[in-house]
Design a protein around this nucleic acid. Structure first.
Length: 672
RNA sequence: GCCACUGUAGCUCAGCAGGUAGAGCAGCUGAUUCGUAAUCAGCAGGUCGGGGGUUCAAAUCCCUCCAGUGGCUCCA
């Protein structure tokens, strides 16, 4: 293991960090850390400071390396294409990119850029920091409007900032960087994409080149292997091989059609969730796919998501919308009769299929379809019941993923309101002159609100409901001992939420579960309960989903297991191959027995050779392949080949017993 | 929606200095009856994503629309 931590040393004022490190006998540093801030080795401290060496192999060091690799990329590009205007090139979690204003480049050109990068590495150019005044900066980058923008945004008048020079290339940058291009030993360009300047779709497109860099070749190779593995596991490819779904881009672009195999998988997951819901007191309901548009106006979806909905008007003039959400349906069921405080919480759930018109460039596979099924749940409860309910949901979530994925690693996000932009959310406003309260969502920040009572325009947002909801979520997380990060501005328009991310077998994090507290939709629909004093009281709603979308979760499972599902999920659990036609009867007897016991079993009575049958069925990823011939027929046994191609022979009854047990217990590995 | 790339048989792909399509697998027919990753032979299968244009002639060149992929934006 490379050493990644070194004891801090004292750096004297006026002496370059690199010299202080050298004097202290510290080797291999590429930058230093002082009070949490990173500096170049060539920087000179103004006063004595305790410094920590940053080694290339550390997380910080690798990030610096990648940042330098981004500069290297820009240098190579500008050497080959002198007209290219680099914009920005940051490191990312697993690599780096650089956005450059240039003509789109193809594969060969990208390879020549990469070749040039290696060549610049072998030149081992010194990467030197210079500090320039603002006018000098503007002059130096006068040919590059993007850098001019950046300088004007980041450097105050009369101020100065650093640039980094390597050979003939110079970039406006805070740094730090590795001391020379020779440090960038393991670098690889990965892909070309395009992006809008400042992520603003009205601005010009830039070419974004992605790449990655690692401290050594071995780490790079391993990363590339993982990437290849991810491509091999692509759910679209495996779903095709296992015959799970059909996408017909002409007839229904973005809409998955389930084949028999695919439906087995979805129904197994639905069954799992049904059982869990029952255990936790969620009652199953079913609601229509189409409603009058008035319900969407009332829920607030229409105002915000109209253009993303499938809407239509009939000849008689009635307008309808296909549901993009299940909540209004559940509300409609809930409000059928008044509820007493004693009856709460009321919890409805549904595997509810919703339809959203995702824009053409956004649809893709199962991760972003236009039709998907949510394991949706809506709890209607009292203010004092939130914490307990959220805790129970967090428990359900943990139960689900540890059961389906094994030792699942979960992380939690708490998304809260951005107080500076209340216009994005449904917020209570209080009139400063007459005290009237209204709950509304401004369409744009410039929208002036007027008091419906006194027509005053002096309305102040009141965040107390948001604060209450958010505090309850914090409470629930804290009392379950869960660590979480808070994200201001990421809340839903009707309330704060907890999102749960799950790590898959390739180390990727996926956002799956979500728990959202909603004070506003119950208000929009006038929901109430009768409290112990016979008065109306406000209903609180919790929206929750554990899998999120079945389709997306299936995609994740396919890639997580590489299609080799645990037996309970596998569309094909047993595949039976007779050694030759002579043993068809015995094979059919076994098959009939398995079918009778509810096993998803198939038998192959074709005239192909046994070898070929085994070969061709592999893409279906059966849990078990049974080969039966003379020996098995005589002994009443089966020859079993499992997912890892391990073979064994056992009595047919024993196989069936173990198989049933494995399925019933949702077992992840194989018992045979 | 924006940018780039791609679209040829059910699947994977070849053909593209313009001369109206080819392979493997899958399928069908026949032979083969086999002990754990491809038995042999034959047959059939495509108005080359749709539309328009240039040309004597378009899968191939041009325009346009649709769709897929990688990104950007968005994601109730």
């Amino acid at each position: 293991m490379p050493q990644t931590e070194i004891k801090p040393i004292l750096a004297k004022a006026g002496i370059k960090f690199e010299d202080s490190l050298k004097n202290a006998g510290v080797k291999g540093a590429i930058a230093v850390l002082v009070d949490g801030r990173e500096f170049d080795l060539s920087d000179v401290p103004e006063k004595d400071a305790l410094v920590e060496a940053i080694l290339l192999e550390s997380a910080r060091g690798t990030k610096i390396l990648r940042h330098s690799a981004a500069h290297l990329l820009a240098q190579a590009v500008t050497e080959i294409f002198p007209d290219a205007r680099p914009n920005a090139g940051p490191p990312t979690d697993d690599g780096f990119y650089y956005d450059i204003d240039m003509k789109a480049i193809n594969q060969e050109e990208m390879e020549s850029v990469e070749k040039r990068m290696r060549e610049i590495v072998s030149r081992n150019l010194k990467i030197q920091k210079e500090v320039l005044s603002k006018p000098d900066l503007l002059k130096k980058f006068s040919h590059n409007p993007y850098k001019i923008d950046k300088i004007n945004e980041n450097v105050p008048d009369g101020g100065a900032s650093s640039v980094y020079v390597q050979g003939g290339f110079v970039d406006f940058c805070k740094g730090p960087h590795v001391p020379s291009t020779g440090y960038i030993k393991a670098v690889k360009l990965l892909s070309v994409a395009s992006t809008h300047y400042k992520a603003d779709e009205t601005r010009p497109m830039l070419v974004r080149i992605y790449g990655t860099a690692f401290p050594d070749d071995k780490a790079l190779k391993e990363y590339l292997r993982n990437r290849e593995e991810a491509v091999k596991r692509d759910h679209r490819k495996i779903a095709q091989e296992m015959d799970l779904l059909v996408f017909n881009s002409e007839r229904a672009p973005g809409f998955p059609l389930y084949t028999p195999n695919g439906l087995v998988l979805k129904e197994e997951l639905t069954g799992f969730m049904r059982k869990l819901n029952r255990k936790h007191g969620w009652q199953e309901v079913a609601t229509p796919h189409i409603y009058r548009d008035t319900i969407w106006k009332q829920s607030g979806h229409y105002a915000k998501y109209k253009s993303d909905m499938f809407l239509f008007t009939l000849e008689d003039g009635d307008s309808y919308g296909v549901k993009p959400m299940n909540c209004p349906g559940h509300i409609t069921i809930f409000e059928r009769e008044p509820k007493s405080y004693r009856e709460l919480p009321v919890k409805y759930c549904e595997a509810g299929t919703v339809y959203r018109y995702e824009k053409s460039g956004e649809v893709g596979g199962l991760t972003r379809p236009r039709m998907f099924t949510i394991d949706d749940g809506h709890a209607f409860l009292r203010l004092d019941q939130i914490v307990q309910e959220v805790r129970d949901i967090m428990y359900m979530i943990k139960e689900t993923f540890s059961s389906i994925l094994g030792e699942a690693q979960l992380t939690y996000d708490l998304s809260v309101i951005d107080r500076d932009n209340p216009g994005n959310y449904l917020v209570t406003y209080k009139c400063a002159s007459c005290g009237t309260q209204i709950e509304t969502r401004r369409v744009s920040v410039s929208d002036e609100l007027t008091c419906p009572n006194c027509s005053s325009t002096d309305l102040k947002p009141d965040f107390s409901t948001w604060d209450q909801a958010t505090d309850q979520l914090r409470d629930a997380l804290d009392s379950e001992g869960l660590k979480y990060t808070e994200n201001p501005g990421e809340a839903a328009f009707y309330g704060p939420k907890i999102d749960v991310h799950v790590k898959d077998a390739l180390g990727r994090m996926w956002q799956l579960s979500t728990v959202q507290v909603d004070f506003f939709m119950p208000t929009n629909f006038g929901l109430y309960y009768i409290n112990s004093e016979s008065k109306h009281d406000r209903i609180i709603m919790i929206h929750r989903a554990v899998f999120g979308s079945y389709e997306r979760f299936m995609a994740i499972l396919i890639e997580h297991f590489a299609g080799k599902f645990p037996t309970w999920l596998a569309p094909l659990q047993t595949y039976i191959v007779p050694v030759s036609e002579k043993f068809n009867d015995y094979a059919q007897k076994i098959h009939a027995k398995l079918i009778d016991e509810g096993i998803r079993a198939q038998i192959d009575l074709g005239s192909e050779t046994m070898n070929k049958k085994i070969k061709t069925i592999r893409k279906m990823r059966p849990s078990y392949i049974l080969v039966v011939g003379e020996k098995e027929q005589n002994d009443g046994t089966v020859s079993v080949r499992n997912r890892s191609d391990r073979q064994s022979v056992m009595p047919a009854d024993e196989f069936l017993r173990k198989l049933k047990d494995e399925i019933k217990s949702y077992r992840l590995d194989q018992s045979i």
